[in-house]
């Protein structure tokens, strides 16, 4: 269970959010660009320091401004899948995948290397360099690399936004499958209603740095609240 209450000023923009997300399933952080989604998960990951507040995961503090706790990102045990993949260009796919895995003791590894490789269909890519991969392949490697660190929570920042429609529909099933197979809770940042409808169980809607809605996500909710989900039905998604 992730519990977040944070306050952060970024220039003239202020982020003031409080939310919690469940032990399993995919929770979407949804909102238009500029609503502060990426800043929020960067703070969860420890890449951005909140001015004030608390971030607790399973009752363990990751950040607490009153207790002066700020766990560095490498000690947070969270997997982060970035919008732009961020594979290490100087390493092969295999070395990218094992980069984080090798940093945790063998008995702490909950996912087997080949389980992840097979699930994400990476077997044929292991010897390649990131420069020789397609956008979709890069994102699959990025997912595998994060999974292999056996994270207790996965953060995904618009992992499909750099892919075209067909590639998106290639990756989405992997994300759902991975979540069901390894039962790792996922925080999924997106601005696409279609995308989150097809994979997320619940949603946190952000507007201008504040939470305006949280709850379970289904088609009924989306239809009833066009003010939160304005893009639904527009042709930018994977369902239509």
């Amino acid at each position: 269970m992730l519990e977040v209450t944070i306050h952060k000023k970024l220039g003239s923009f202020t982020i003031n959010v409080a939310f919690s997300s469940g032990d399993s399933g995919i929770t979407a952080i949804f909102g238009p660009s500029g609503s502060g989604k990426t800043s929020v998960i960067n703070m969860v990951a420890g890449l951005l320091k909140p001015d004030q507040g608390q971030i607790y995961f399973d009752s363990e503090p990751l950040f607490d401004s009153e207790k002066k706790i700020n766990v560095p990102p490498n000690k947070r045990r969270l997997g982060y899948i970035f919008q732009d993949g961020r594979l290490f260009p100087h390493l092969s796919v295999r070395s990218n995948l094992t980069y984080g895995m090798n940093l945790i003791p063998k008995n702490g590894r909950r996912l087997g290397f080949y389980d992840v490789v097979n699930m994400l269909d990476l077997g044929d890519l292991l010897h390649r360099r990131p420069a020789k991969l397609s956008g979709g392949e890069k994102q699959r490697v990025a997912i595998g690399r994060a999974l292999l660190t056996s994270p207790s929570l996965l953060l995904m920042d618009e992992p499909l936004s750099s892919l075209d429609g067909r590639r998106k529909s290639e990756i989405l099933p992997f994300i759902s499958k991975m979540q069901k197979k390894f039962l790792i809770p996922v925080l999924y940042v997106s601005h696409s209603t279609d995308e989150i409808l097809s994979i997320a169980d619940s949603v946190i809607v952000l507007r201008a740095g504040e939470v305006v809605f949280t709850g379970g996500l289904d088609i009924k909710l989306v239809r009833e609240h066009p003010e939160f989900f304005p893009t639904f039905g527009s042709n930018n998604g994977v369902c239509g």
Partner: peptide, 24 residues
């Protein structure tokens, strides 16, 4: 961003420097 990615994968600042920054 690559260095940030390495941090989230569990590498401390020194390791990031020698395994990501220096090769690049």
């Amino acid at each position: 961003g690559l260095e940030a990615a390495a941090r989230t994968l569990g590498a401390g600042p020194l390791r990031v420097f020698f395994t990501v920054t220096v090769p690049l």
